[in-house]
Amino acid sequence: MRLLIVEDDPLIADSLTQGLGPLGNTVEVFTVLSEARAALAHSHFDLVVLDLGLPDGNGLTLLAEIRRRGDATPVLILTARDGVAERVQGLDLGADDYLAKPFSLPELQARVRALLRRSQQRTDNRLRFGPLCFDPASGEVTLHDERLDLPPRELGLMEGLLLHAGRIVPREQLIDRLFGFGEAGPNALDLYISRLRKRLQGSGVRIRTLRGLGYRLEDDPT
């Protein structure tokens, strides 16, 4: 994987290189927009980590340029200010994720991994998370390379969770996905979740309930 980091602070740039390199990536760092622009124009990257406050301008202009020429390279935005306006503007311009400084390195690593996974899916349709793998073409789910036979509702639920693996999937979204609009009560979802949990027990991944928010497919630390 080839990563482009645009960050003018040498300390942060250094820690980003150190933190992301071990994940199996080649990392290139630029400190000004113009150099990053030139690099992006001439070669392919799998991910761009873009700081917004740069000495020669706002990173959002580069983002806009990238998207304007149809380049779908995933972009993760970093900024010192947790401003909603900037975040919304960044997402509107086509950023894939957003992280406010100060951030913790593990969190950044997780987000980058998720983005790379999604980026990869554009060439390989299969959804993977840890030992889990789902092939939307065949509808086949494997756990530790062993086939899991899932009834349709559980299969749908699994796909919904896998699509956003590592992130919270709101309950409403899963209900809509499984039952259509207003067809079944919320309890039905709980039923399928508990069935899936049983299947995943001891596999290294788990489904966590976040009260009032939704569910998340995550690594099981136990």
Binding site: S104, P106, E107, A110, R167, I168, P170, L213, G214
Partner: peptide
């Protein structure tokens, strides 16, 4: 809802 969702995602 948005804010809690965002925080729930944080480490």
């Amino acid at each position: 809802r948005d804010t809690v969702m965002e925080w729930a995602e944080r480490d």
